[in-house]
Design a protein around this nucleic acid. Structure first.
Lengths: 231, 231
DNA sequence: CGCTCCGTTGAAACGGTTCAACCCACGTGG
DNA sequence: CCACGTGGGTTGAACCGTTTCAACGGAGCG
């Protein structure tokens, strides 16, 4: 299938005239990864950026003793690694395939050349980066201002809204990953899920979570404390 | 003094042709703030962005119970609030003058119009946002992966490098602010400073800090533990 | 002088991590 | 078909860093 057609749906390239789309397509290189494959590591030279066509990519930081903080999970249609393109430095984090993935790679110099010629591409890219900044600000806020139960509550609410209000949601990542995404460890996550169950805020079973007390969760997500805690 | 001349030195506008600079200048509005004045609050409509001409601006998030996490302190030459411009949403954090400040305000629509016409302005803006993303990633990393001593050590090293290697540095923010910047509280900061003194890693006196054991600090900043702790 | 703001100190409480053990589902190979 | 190993998830107990609360000291200022 033609590359131009496949990138037309990506928000980064939304609204571009067909001819520009063709130019963008002409510099894209397709790459495939198996689950677990490394796309790049922190410190690698930033030679270009990627767009997820299929699969899922995990972008994360690692501490010396191995603990990992997930910065974001990128799904089809999203791009990552652009920071290195515009700062002219190394990649600031690690990226690896969370699921078997197909990516498009855009080499730095060629892409910068395109931007120079096409202002609306630049504006799209600015919008993408701004959104990311906004998400990061939210993540920083929740890491520093909220305790783990609050972060978890916020995430549950986020999921339930993304899935359009169904009171029951399904985690599409493992609990271990979720822990890393929330900035904690699996044990703590497990205990908190337990406690939320005991307090009848949710009913969780495996990867399914039913929301029982939405206001309660919202209160937690705003920074409220957990009613109390034996364990 | 002519606005164009005053913005010429700002990195965001670096390398722009004189005529473009003039256009940029023509949409800037000068605004002055006293220490403590609010520039905008989280949730305010994002009508444009700001550049710091003089003074210092604090951008921060607040939790319901009043604890504050500083996202960044912006000095002369830096810009903030652009995120709202390109996402078309509200400001995602609060901003207020940390010192008496002079800012230039750039209204959103007019600025977007300029970007559309001037690709190198777009590229500059992309570089600025990418840098900011990089800093945020580092902040997220340190908030979630490192303990407070590590974050403090990283900050001390950062300061000493910014001031070009002088072994003695001077804090130009209050310790309370520094605590918020590091994602902690003044008490904790005070104790850790104390401990570092006792361990002969630094010698701190008021707002001056002398570095005694740089390798030790670097080890801490990489995620190492504090040798031990009676208090 | 008395006020406030900032920084410091101490003791106690808390939340989260660590470490270890254990369970279960699953896939592999004998 | 069953033994085995593996990875994800859960549980308990001890531990540790940080926060909380309260009190106090000094600097700056009306």
């Amino acid at each position: 299938m033609d590359i131009a057609a496949r990138i037309a749906g990506i928000s980064l390239f939304e609204g571009l005239p067909p001819q520009q789309l063709q130019e963008v397509a002409s510099i894209a290189r397709e790459r495939r990864y198996e689950k677990g494959d490394v796309v790049f590591l922190e410190g690698d030279e930033g030679t270009g950026f990627y767009v997820v066509v299929k699969g899922r990519v995990r972008v994360y930081k690692i501490s010396p003793d191995g603990k990992e903080q997930i910065l974001h999970l990128f799904e089809a249609g999203e791009c990552f690694g652009e920071v290195a393109v515009f700062t002219g430095k190394d990649y600031p984090a690690n990226a690896s395939a969370e699921l078997p993935a197909t990516l498009f790679f855009f080499p730095r110099n060629e892409f910068v050349g395109l931007i120079r010629k096409e202002p609306s591409l630049a504006l799209n890219m600015l919008a993408v980066l701004s959104m990311r900044l906004r998400r990061f600000a939210a993540l920083i806020e929740s890491l520093s201002l909220k305790e783990v139960p609050g972060r978890l509550a916020a995430y549950i609410i986020y999921l339930s809204e993304r899935d359009k209000g169904s009171g029951t949601i399904k985690l599409d990542i493992s609990k271990g990953r979720l822990a890393a995404l929330l900035g904690t460890i699996p044990e703590t996550l497990s205990r908190i899920l337990n406690k939320m169950n005991r307090l009848d805020m949710i009913r969780s079973d495996g990867s399914k979570i039913a929301i029982l007390d939405r206001p309660g969760l919202e209160e937690l997500a705003r920074g409220g404390k957990m009613p109390f805690g034996q364990t």
